[in-house]
Design a binder for these strands. Structure first.
Length: 423
RNA sequence: AGAGGAGUGGCAGAGUGGUCGAAUGCGGCGGUCUUGAAAACCGUUGUACCGCAAGGUACCGGGGGUUCGAAUCCCUCCUCCUCUGCCA
């Protein structure tokens, strides 16, 4: 969430950034924050003064008791009863104000970075890079949902039987492909200096708040009600939360972690071709990169992460493009996001396979993730993450783009991992 | 899952109702000494909030309670350890 101190100092800029993000009533909500904070501070001051008085009396009583002046002590106690009531009321008032402020701040998204283009939806996203030849296949190109049946490598009916829609079973070379991609992506991440981690895939409520899935977006996660835990929608959540409530030594920065996990998304939503097959699933596998960086360097890091994803896609020989999301299409917690889309020849569509974002201090503020700056003052760090990458759509694109009469060609870089050159 | 024990500052570890934000040791930082280093010695060393400041307030796993006053007593939750049971 945003920091009240920032809002106070840069109110106009923040309102601008929020409007770009298409956050309604930015100005009035910000005003409400400032007003609530004002009340909070006033209440805090009063309460502190009263507590100071109560503390002084308690000390006095102690001294009188020790001196054996019991009656005098009893006399002073009368005042404390009064103070106690007032303090309790003030305490409650303060808690209410603090809670109100927090709830208010939770409703405010991150501010869009200055380079983020204006726009209401994905139509306004800015194309900033493309690689490879994006053209439909000639002849009888099949979409991946047909190919997986032909080669019997992903089975939706089986998944339906044992779980439900959106939970496919990968079989034979399909399963092997998954394992190959995971290993390839993880190996590349480790080569790039990321420390591999394997986090839990169930998270508690505090973690959900830390990275911004809670409150409000609980409907998108599977909830294990008998333990009050959530299935992760992305490894971003457990990996970033490893650093919740931490004060990091500046010389440890940047912190780079990579992890492979399954991801779970409820996404009750649309039907049709764009959710067919592997395009959208309730459970899918993903390798995620997370970095924690000094605020001055987070945009360099963002570029570095984007270059990493480019390298992966080029190694896989998949035509792709990079989009800078416009304000209206940006996620709640992101200051800036680059989407990587792979061209799927048989669908003649672009499939999002990676999303790389800088959250600046928005998550760090919720996480209480800080470091001591050059001036010895505590400062919030910046968090970033990116998928590298989401497997099902990469698989879909590989199947569709590499189909031949003889079968599906596996990219060279994956062959050492699959042990076969063709499906 | 049952029985018992324990959670204190970066770490170790005292403290069982007042003078305790908390002894002591280690570690860290600064200094003296030294050509340099080590050792020794001296000093310093938590976080958040309120306040222009002086200063004040809160925090001893989390939450609640008793009391004029709680790290210390009570309730509750969480975590860890030991034993028993179960198990990949």
């Amino acid at each position: 969430m945003l920091q009240v101190s920032e809002i106070k100092e840069n109110k106009e800029l923040i309102v601008q950034g929020l409007l770009k993000k298409r956050f309604q009533n930015a100005e009035s909500v910000i005003d409400k924050v400032l007003q609530t904070d004002q009340e909070r501070r006033a209440t805090q001051s009063t309460l502190d003064a009263q507590l100071a008085e109560a503390n002084a009396i308690a000390k006095q009583v102690g001294e009188l008791m020790k001196a054996g002046k019991k009656e005098e002590a009893e006399g002073i106690k009368a005042r404390t009863a009064e103070l106690k009531q007032q303090n309790k009321a003030l305490q409650e008032q303060l808690s209410l104000l603090e809670e109100a402020l927090k709830q208010l701040l939770y409703t405010i998204p991150n501010v869009a970075h200055s380079s983020v283009p204006e726009g209401n939806d994905d139509k306004a996203n800015e194309l900033i890079y493309s690689w490879g030849e994006a053209k439909p296949l000639e002849g009888q190109a099949k979409p991946h949902w047909d190919l997986i049946k032909t080669y019997d490598i992903v089975d939706f009916d089986l998944g339906n039987k044992i779980t439900g829609a959106g939970f496919p079973v990968y079989k034979g070379k399909g399963a092997r492909m998954q394992r190959a991609m995971v290993n390839f992506f993880l190996d590349k991440a480790v080569e790039a200096g990321y420390v591999e981690v394997q986090p839990p895939i169930l998270i508690n409520e505090a973690s959900g708040y830390g990275t911004g899935q809670l409150p409000d977006k609980e409907g998108q996660m599977y909830h294990v009600t008998n333990e009050d835990l959530y299935l992760i929608p992305t490894a971003e959540v457990p990996i970033t939360n490893m650093y919740r409530d931490e004060i990091i030594d500046a010389d440890r920065l940047p912190i780079k972690n990579a992890g492979f996990t399954p991801c779970f998304r409820r996404e009750a939503g649309s039907w049709g071709a764009h959710v067919r097959g592997l395009n959208r699933l309730h459970q899918f596998d993903k390798v995620e990169l997370v970095q924690i960086q000094h605020p001055d360097k987070s945009y360099e890091t963002l570029d570095e992460m984007c270059n990493h994803v480019k390298m992966l896609l080029e190694a896989l020989e998949l035509p792709y493009r990079v989009l800078r999301l416009c304000g209206g299409d940006l996620g709640f917690t992101a200051a800036i996001t680059y989407d990587f889309e792979v061209y799927s020849a048989a669908q003649d569509r672009w499939l999002e396979v990676s999303s790389v974002s800088n959250f600046e201090s928005y998550q760090a503020n919720r996480l209480k993730l800080r470091f001591r700056g050059e001036d010895k003052k505590m400062q919030l760090l910046h968090t970033l993450n990116g998928s590298a990458m989401a497997l099902p759509r990469v698989l879909a694109a590989l199947l569709e783009n590499n189909q031949t009469a003889e079968g599906i060609n596996i990219p060279k870089v994956l062959q050492p991992y699959t042990g076969f050159e063709r499906i």
